[in-house]
């Protein structure tokens, strides 16, 4: 392959990799955020925050 097609192949590869990763990470990020802030999880997570303080040493 010529240097030009090489470069094109490389940037196409980069576009693909970054594109797929961006979508995957964004989806999971939104997913965790929704889960953490979902109203029905609120009580459970607020209680969980107290776990380290529960027991005297």
């Amino acid at each position: 392959m010529s240097p030009v097609t090489d470069a094109v192949a490389q940037s196409a590869q980069l576009g693909w990799v970054l594109g797929v990763m961006t979508v995957a990470f964004l989806t999971s990020f939104v997913g965790w955020t929704l889960w953490a802030w979902w109203p029905s999880n609120r009580e459970r997570l607020d209680a969980a925050a107290l776990l380290p303080l529960e027991e005297s040493p």
Binding site: W32, L45, D46, A48, A49
Partner: peptide
């Protein structure tokens, strides 16, 4: 605590 979950993932 919620922020800590986001922080982790």
């Amino acid at each position: 605590y919620r922020l800590s979950i986001i922080h982790f993932w």
